[in-house]
Structure formats: structure tokens, C-alpha cells
Design a protein around this nucleic acid. Structure first.
Length: 941
RNA sequence: GGACGCGUAGCUCAGCUGGUUAGAGCGCUGCUUUCACACAGCAGAGGUCCGGGGUUCGAGUCCCUGCGCGUCCACCA
């Protein structure tokens, strides 16, 4: 049974307190409420409602970064999706037709690795199974385990459009991948390249530059002596970090200007261990100041050496196999001595070093720190490998993507990433898209081995050669996972079908929310594909959020065991607490720090605020009851008390602050962000703070306290108070719905009906309107600002009570001496202050007795006779009070002097902004009054 | 090696185009279990805004520099 169900729609005058437990129990509410949203279709996007396709609403589209299909939700996903959900829920209320499109990624290498591990556990391999069976088995695995993450996303409240859930290996998505490949192939932007690429000897596939990550490693530099052929007296010492590759050397290169080696240019050296003769060549690539100034050139096993080798038309002997064991391939078979054949590269390194030492060719070994590339999926050291791969020519694609950011079509937040993005695109290199895997989209290229006609890329499978009708053979490789990911914003909407209604309605989209780590992998490539295939960017804002880390600032990871399971948090404190903690604690682009060993402390902000909000609701709903309440519009303005005006003003401020924090939704008519707009908005923490401040520090701490007696008093004023109370809370719930969808919806459902029978905007809070600040100016006799006097007087009295340690229950007498008496407000004002401070407050001046004095801004004095604070007065008390006043006078005078000095300065009054100067003048008046009043009091004592 | 960012209360961080007495959350101290909430209320302590120069009537905010930390990029074998 849900909380909502538990409350009958009975016309009982008051909501029984026991219908609402004292603490919010998320577990009783969340899943059932989510199911009701789902049943009502609150998060399903409608093409018909979009203005681009005949409707009236602007679309607001976010594509969910698809998690790996086999992934389990971690707290990083939680953060990422919460941010998206906040934006989506905000815009949904604000009247946009929102589409948040969810889905999963087949994750080529990652998924294949998981299944291969399973096979290994069964004592099998994918090769034993064969390609078809392996793919079937992997698909089966995905079928049974995949999608779990999507239901976990539902548990944290993600209001995505699940009717459009996508998966990169479905038929339509595969068609998009093939279409993109074939178009690029036909345009000459996809080509076959023969070069040294990054190879993972464990995954047995090539990797793109981005997938081969640098890790700083403490290695060694080996100095090895190569002798000149036929001249034992001459030699060159080369420096290398990878001595095992010397078997594949084809030359030693020196800088042409390096005089040390000039006379050896063109001579031949003898490779130790295999006796192969190689030339000494000159090439600018070599830096004379590094190492010995002589570089061994191994074209098949180093990308730079490959370049050098190409320039000098050198051979490319391969001396390692796919598993990175020493083995001479083809002509190079004799380059590897028999005793080293089949030896793993790292073992071989050790053995070769020993062999070199034995023959006296090892000069020295020095420690050497350098960066080594590792496989981003299995962390194996990547082996440069000469092979044939498919590449995408990136420079033409990068041009519009660069322009997009430069001209403001796209903004990247935080802004500093724009420079990184531009820097990367300017130096972009071609993208290796073929992978020697089985799990993924197979390269749609077909070969004829018979007549040798040129390979063809095809949208449809080719079974026979068009030239000679021999059986055609499809390329064995699959495409990089990111080759399907980069199409995500268009393929999920139906591309390449240009008639797709979704594509017309929701492309281009709006915001992309992700982590900076995949700026190159994914974000920039989506921008490129958007321009290439649709002629426009897929979104106008890239929001890069921080990483969730532990208290030692370490990234949370499975291997470190420092992760937080979001589901644990949901179970303990609720999805809203998880969401609130992350959103409220996250500056733009700032990492979120959470302690995995202390969930209680980590999620205290969320849990505490939920409980507070719940209790505010509990109290308010109990007091207000279930009788119909007047809409605010039906309340005559002059019946509003100053407290009413104050809280309504504060609500306006909260709404304005929230809107400012969230910022401009989309660029203006030009379609481009202005320079100023690039950095505006998307401050989710500031938005959350505006909501928290209103509901906790203003509504609960002040307004609720003052409204209590009015409600119990009954009569017309009680109706006014009810109306304002309900309106203010309704506004607060609307404001907080995007971050706290469950608790706000639950409380909102319990608000009493409106007396005019209007429906308050529908069945669900999540689909009602975003609150709007009132535009009409305040026009009452009693301004909401007057309530500030109540607040200040209350604070002053409390301070005195605390200072003199007056018992909490003791009622004291307080005299207020207003600087500018407001006759109309006075009675209520006094009563309210009294209620807030356990005091009887009067305006009658008291005789000059020993008293505590407080002077408020504006000059109103608060006087509390000391006699009632102390059982017996002593001289000390008066002296103490005098001393306190003197201290305060000094402090105030100091500030006043500062302000006066400033105002006396010509440069300030003439150059500072008028409102700043005016503020200083007002401050001067207040401070002067205060000093004067305080001084009078000291004299009186 | 290049580029960028950060260094503000015990901790994590806000502080927009320089202008009131620098803020929040968590933590800490004292008081209070008052009939919404102790996951609370009230009052409070705590900051040379990393150091040093400079620009300015005025700098946490701009410039230079030193120190410390971090991120991204990069073929130095």
C-alpha cells in the first residue's frame, strides 16, 4: 500500500496526525508512485505536441548516454542520470515537450571480455565455439542480464521515455551504422590503412588512439651497443626502453646534424643476437640531445619508427605475433633466434637483456619514467602492431565541429573544456574503427578472392561477386563500439529514415550530460556525425559533470572496493535523498566526494532535508486540514498580513533564484549562444539551494511559526492564512519536484482542494506547471519588508535570552521603541514577536532601569529590563552590560567610519554604480542611528 | 614538454561583470526533548580569502611572481 493510497479522500476537517508517520519512509512510496507515473504516461514524448511538427510546445531533448548493456548501476551513473532527470523534469513542468531517450550500448570489447571470461571458466574459448555460436551466446547473455541497469535507473526516479528505449545492436540501429559507414566509404572518408596501430594482445584487437590510455610507468632505459660490420673497433650505442624489439630493427637513425655520427652514415651495423645487418641513416626525427642521439628503428613495432621506415623505404619485419610473443612472421622468421621463439614479450625482454649482457653488448641500464599505453578495457600494455585497418578521415569532419563551438552553436560547460575540445579537434588524427572482435557491427565491406576486384561497401549483404559471380566474402572485423555511439543522437530517432517523425520533431536536441572522460570518445564525434549526416549539431549544450570520488579523492571503482551502491542508498534513505545529496553537493564540473564507509554521514544532507520537508508537510497539512482552501487569486490583497506578504515575496525570490540558477534554456533566435550566455545557468546546486532556503529557512523557520495562532483563531484571517500557506507550500513543492520527485509528489497529493473547484493543474505534480514569480508590484499598506523588523527583533531578543541564560519557558517583558512607529502593524507585530520569543512585547517606554538593549537596523530599539533576567541584580550586571554596549559601539563606529570615508571619497561617489552608492548611504544612516541610540543607552546606565 | 584549472571556516565547496560587516552544507561548543521535525530548534565559536609584489578611491574578485595540488594533451626513442 502506498502512502497516497493510505490517505482517504474523506471530508474530515483535519488530517489525523497519525496518518503521516514522523519520518518519511521512501520505501513505502517510491516504487508504487513510479508505477503510477508510468501508467499515466507522464514521461512519454509526443511528436504531435512539438511545435516543429504541428504542435505548440518547444521540444527539449536529452539523449541518455547509454550505459553498457551488462553494466550494474554505480553511483556515477546515478549522478549522471540525476542531473539529466532534474533538467528533464524542470522542462516538463515548464511546458516543453520533453524527450529523454534512454538505452544501452552493446559495448563491444567489454561485453565480449565478460563472455570470454565465462567461457574460460568453462574451459572453453571463443575460437573453439566459433563465431556464430559465440555471437549467439553473447546475445543470449545480454538478453538475460542486460537491461538490469535500466530498471535500476527507474528506482532512482529517472523519468525517461521508456517506450523509446534503444539498444545499439538492434536492427534499426545496425542499419544506421551500415548506412553511415557506406556513405563515408562512398565519400572517401573511410579508407583502408596499412600502419602501426595500438594492439591489445589480450583482447586481440586493435584500439583507437583514445582507447589506448597513457599510464605513467617507471621503466628502464637500456643502452645497447651495435657494432659496425667488418670493423670491430667502431660501434654505436642506442638507447631504448624496449630492447626486445631490436630483433626487428631495420636501421639506426641519427640526426643529420649530429657530427658524432657523420662518418658512420651509410655504414652497416650488425644486430646483436641475430646478426642482421642494418644501415645507419640520417633523419630529423632523431633528437641529438636525447639518449645517445642514435635511435634503433623498428618499423613494425613503433608508430614513429614506421614513419621513419616509410621515409627511407625500409622493410617492416614483424617479430611478434598477435599474442605479443616473439615470433618472426613471414620473411622475418630468421630474425628471432630459435630459443626465443614463442616467448612472451616481457619474458623476452629479460632474456634478451641477459643475452646482451653475456656478449658484452649491454652498456648500461638507467631508470626511466615514461608513459606507456594500456588497453582501456583490460589494462594490458598495448603493443604497437603493423596491420591493415579501417580508418575514418577525421579532418573534414572536424571542421564544422570546431566551428560549432567557436561560433556558439554549441557551448561546453564548464567553459574550460572548450579549449580542450578545440585543441583536440585541431590536431585530430584519423580514427581506427575496425576491431578484431566478434561482438559488434560487422564491417559492411565485401571482397572477391577470385577476381580480386576492389572491395565494396554495401548496405545489403553481398553474396556473390558482381564481376565474376564467385562467392563474396565479408570483412571479418567489427566496428568500434563508438562507431555506433557517435550516431546515437540520430539513430535513436530513426535516422537514416529522413521521414521519421521523431527525427523531425526532436532533432536537433538540447543538452548532453556526461563526464569529461568521454569528451573525445563520444561527445566530439557525435557533433561530427550530427553535421555530417544531418547538417546540424545534435545539441546546443554539453554539460560535463564531475566524478564521484571517495574521501581520498580516489575514483570509485570495483577493484578498489571503494564504491557506493546507489541501490543501498535508495533502500536506506530513498531515491530523493540520493538525488538531493548529489545535486546539492555538486558545483559545476566539481567532483562529488562521498564516503563509502559512512553512508549515513555522506547522505545526511539528503536524508535530513527529506525529513525536514516531510515534517513541514505533516505540520502544515495537519493544521490546514482537508477543507477546500481559497486560491491565492481569490484573496483580497489588503487582507494579507505582512507575514503573508513576506513569505509570498520570498517565494518569488526563490523562484527567480531557481530560474537564474538553471539559466537560459536554449539559445535565442539566432541559434547561437552569446558570449555571456555561454557560462550562464546549469547551476543545479544553486537551484537546489534556492529551494532549500525557501522551504527550510523561510517557510518553516519563520512563516509557519507566525501563522500558527492565526489558524487556531479561526475567522476570515484564518482563511487568508490557509490560502497563503497552501500556496507557498504548493510553490515550494513545484520548485523542488525536479530534484525530489517522490516526496514532493506524495505531499502535493495531500494538499486540500481549491475552493473554486479548479484542479491545481492535473493529477500529478510532475506534469503541472513550473511556478512563476508574481509580476505585479506589491501594492499594500503593509509591505512584506516590514516583516524584517519582526525577524530582527526576534533575533535580538533571542540573543539576549541566550546571553543571560533565561530559562526557555520563562516569559519575559520586552519593550520596543520603534524608530518609525507603524500604528497599523504594531499590534500584530508585537504579538508575533512575542510568540516567537516567549515574551510579552509592548510599545510603552520604560523608566530608565538597568536593561539589555539591542538596536536594530533602522534604529528600532529593543529594551529588556535586567531585573527579570536575574534573580538578583548586581553591579556587575550593569557593568557588564555597559561594557557590552561599548564594545558594540566601537565595532559599529569602526564600520561607520569606513563607510563615511568611502562616501567622502569623490572617486567612489562619482564612479561606483548608483545603487552601490545608495546602499552605502542607507548603511551610513542605519549605522549612525545605531551608534547614537547605543551611546544614549550607555549614558543612561 | 605544451595547455588549462585549483589553492576561501576542521572537511567539501559557493562567492556573477572589483564596491554593504566574506557565505552554505557537514562537523564542533552551549542550551532545549516546547503538542511538525533531536534526521530538530535556538544561540555561538571558527577565516592573515596559499605567500610576495602590482593596478585601483577600493581586490577574495584584475595583473605579475613564488610555492603547493590537479586535469587534459604530447612520438622524445
Amino acid at each position: 500500500m502506498t502512502m497516497t493510497d493510505a490517505v482517504p479522500q474523506s471530508p474530515s476537517p483535519a488530517l489525523a496526525a497519525d496518518e503521516l508517520p514522523t519520518t518519511y519512509r521512501a520505501a513505502d512510496v517510491e516504487s508504487a508512485l513510479y508505477a503510477r507515473w508510468q501508467a499515466a504516461g507522464t514521461d512519454v514524448a509526443s511528436v504531435a505536441r512539438v511545435d516543429r511538427t504541428g504542435g505548440t510546445r518547444p521540444p527539449y531533448t536529452i539523449m541518455m548516454p547509454p550505459p553498457n548493456v551488462t553494466a550494474i548501476l554505480h553511483v556515477g551513473h546515478g549522478l549522471n542520470n540525476t542531473v539529466q532527470d532534474v533538467l528533464i523534469r524542470w522542462r516538463r513542468m515548464a511546458g516543453d515537450e520533453v524527450l529523454w531517450l534512454p538505452g544501452t550500448d552493446h559495448a563491444g570489447i567489454a561485453t565480449q571480455n565478460v563472455v570470454e571470461k565465462q567461457l574460460a571458466a568453462e574451459g572453453s574459448t571463443r575460437q573453439q565455439l566459433g563465431r556464430e555460436a559465440f555471437v549467439a551466446r553473447t546475445a543470449q547473455f545480454v538478453e538475460t542480464t542486460g537491461g538490469a541497469i535500466l530498471s535500476q535507473l527507474k528506482s532512482i526516479g529517472a523519468s525517461a521515455d521508456w517506450t523509446r528505449t534503444a539498444y545499439t545492436l538492434t536492427e534499426p540501429m545496425s542499419a544506421a551504422v551500415t548506412e553511415a559507414f557506406v556513405r563515408l566509404f562512398e565519400d572517401g572518408l573511410v579508407y583502408r590503412g596499412h600502419r602501426v596501430i595500438h594492439w591489445c594482445p589480450r583482447c586481440l584487437t586493435s584500439l583507437s588512439d583514445e582507447e589506448a590510455e597513457f599510464n605513467d610507468t617507471q621503466g628502464a632505459m637500456y643502452y645497447i651497443r651495435y657494432h659496425i660490420a667488418d670493423d670491430a673497433s667502431r660501434s654505436i650505442v642506442v638507447a631504448t626502453t624496449r630492447p626486445e624489439t631490436l630483433l626487428g630493427d631495420v636501421a639506426v637513425a641519427v640526426n643529420p646534424t649530429d657530427e658524432r655520427y657523420t662518418d658512420l652514415l651509410g655504414r652497416e651495423l650488425v644486430l646483436p643476437l641475430n646478426g642482421v645487418r642494418i644501415p645507419v641513416i640520417a633523419d630529423d626525427y632523431t633528437d641529438a640531445d636525447f639518449g645517445t642521439g642514435a635511435v634503433k628503428i623498428t618499423p613494425a613495432h613503433d608508430p614513429n619508427d614506421f614513419e621513419v621506415g616509410t621515409r627511407h623505404q625500409l622493410a617492416t619485419p614483424v617479430i611478434m605475433d598477435a599474442e605479443a610473443r616473439l615470433n618472426g612472421l613471414g620473411d622475418a622468421v630468421d630474425r628471432v633466434p630459435p630459443e626465443l621463439r614463442g616467448v612472451d614479450r616481457f619474458e623476452a625482454r629479460q632474456r634478451i637483456v641477459n643475452m646482451l649482457r653475456d656478449i658484452g653488448a649491454l652498456v648500461k641500464i638507467e631508470p626511466h619514467a615514461h608513459s606507456v599505453r594500456h588497453c582501456y578495457r583490460c589494462d594490458t600494455v598495448v603493443e604497437p602492431r603493423l596491420s591493415d585497418q579501417w580508418f575514418v578521415k577525421m579532418a573534414p569532419l572536424a571542421t564544422p565541429a570546431l566551428e560549432a563551438v567557436r561560433t556558439g552553436r554549441i557551448r561546453i560547460m564548464p567553459e574550460r573544456w572548450e579549449a580542450v575540445y578545440i585543441n583536440w579537434l585541431e590536431g585530430i588524427r584519423d580514427w581506427n574503427i575496425s576491431r578484431q572482435l566478434w561482438w559488434g557491427h560487422r564491417v559492411p565491406v565485401y571482397y572477391c578472392d577470385d577476381c580480386g576486384t576492389a572491395p565494396k561497401a554495401s548496405r545489403m549483404p553481398i553474396t556473390h561477386c558482381s564481376e565474376c559471380n564467385a562467392p563474396a566474402r565479408q570483412d571479418e572485423d567489427v566496428l568500434d563500439t563508438w562507431f555506433s555511439s557517435w550516431l546515437w543522437p540520430i539513430s535513436t530517432l530513426g535516422w537514416p529514415n529522413s521521414d521519421s517523425a521523431d527525427l523531425k520533431a526532436f532533432y536537433p536536441g538540447d543538452v548532453l550530460v556526461t563526464a569529461p572522460e568521454i569528451l573525445f570518445f563520444w561527445v566530439s564525434r557525435m557533433i561530427m556525425s550530427g553535421y555530417q549526416f544531418m547538417g546540424d549539431a545534435p545539441f546546443h549544450t554539453v554539460y560535463l559533470h564531475g566524478t564521484v570520488r571517495d574521501m581520498q579523492h580516489r575514483k570509485m571503482s570495483k577493484s578498489l572496493g571503494n564504491g557506493i551502491d546507489p541501490m543501498d542508498v535508495v533502500t536506506l534513505y530513498g531515491a530523493d535523498a540520493l538525488r538531493w545529496t548529489m545535486v546539492a553537493g555538486m558545483g559545476l564540473g566539481v567532483d562529488v566526494l562521498l564516503d563509502p564507509t559512512d553512508l549515513e554521514k555522506s547522505f545526511a544532507p539528503g536524508r535530513n532535508f527529506l525529513t525536514k520537508l516531510w515534517n513541514i508537510g505533516r505540520f502544515l497539512l495537519t493544521k490546514v486540514g482537508t477543507e477546500p482552501v481559497q486560491p491565492l487569486s481569490a484573496i483580497a490583497p489588503d487582507t494579507l498580513t505582512m507575514a503573508d506578504r513576506w513569505i509570498l515575496d520570498r517565494l518569488d525570490v526563490a523562484i527567480t533564484d531557481a530560474n537564474d540558477a538553471l539559466g537560459p534554456v536554449r539559445p535565442g533566435p539566432s541559434g547561437r549562444w552569446t558570449e555571456a550566455e555561454r557560462t550562464m545557468g546549469m547551476r543545479l546546486d544553486a537551484y537546489a539551494d534556492a529551494g532549500r532556503r525557501f522551504v527550510w529557512n523561510e517557510l518553516a523557520d519563520w512563516y509557519l511559526e507566525t501563522v500558527k495562532p492565526r489558524l487556531t483563531a479561526g475567522g476570515p484571517d484564518a482563511e487568508v492564512a490557509r490560502a497563503v500557506l497552501v500556496h507557498a507550500f504548493d510553490g515550494a513543492l513545484r520548485l523542488l519536484q525536479p530534484v525530489l520527485p517522490f516526496i514532493t509528489e506524495t505531499l502535493w497529493a495531500k494538499l486540500p482542494p481549491l475552493a473554486d473547484g479548479s484542479a491545481r493543474g492535473g493529477e500529478f505534480l510532475c506534469t503541472t506547471a513550473w511556478p512563476e514569480a508574481r509580476t505585479e508590484t506589491r501594492s499594500s499598506a503593509v509591505s512584506g519588508d516590514a516583516f524584517e523588523l519582526v525577524r530582527n527583533a526576534t533575533l535580538a531578543i533571542r540573543q539576549v535570552r541566550n546571553e543571560y541564560k533565561v530559562k526557555p519557558g520563562k516569559v519575559i517583558e520586552v519593550t520596543l521603541v520603534p524608530a518609525a512607529p507603524d500604528a497599523a502593524a504594531a499590534p500584530l507585530l508585537l504579538e508575533t514577536i512575542g510568540a516567537l520569543t516567549k515574551a510579552t512585547v509592548s510599545l510603552h517606554p520604560v523608566a530608565d532601569v538597568p536593561a539589555a538593549h539591542q538596536v536594530l537596523a533602522g534604529g528600532t530599539e529593543v529594551v529588556i529590563a535586567l531585573a527579570q533576567l536575574r534573580d538578583e541584580l548586581s553591579v556587575d550586571d550593569t557593568a557588564k552590560e555597559v561594557a557590552r554596549l561599548r564594545t558594540e559601539i566601537d565595532a559599529t563606529q569602526k564600520i561607520l567610519d569606513g563607510v563615511r570615508a568611502k562616501l567622502g571619497n569623490e572617486s567612489f561617489t562619482s564612479r561606483a554604480k548608483p545603487e552601490v552608492v545608495e546602499g552605502a548611504r542607507a548603511q551610513e544612516r542605519d549605522l549612525a542611528q545605531k551608534v547614537e541610540a547605543l551611546t544614549r543607552k550607555v549614558e543612561a546606565l
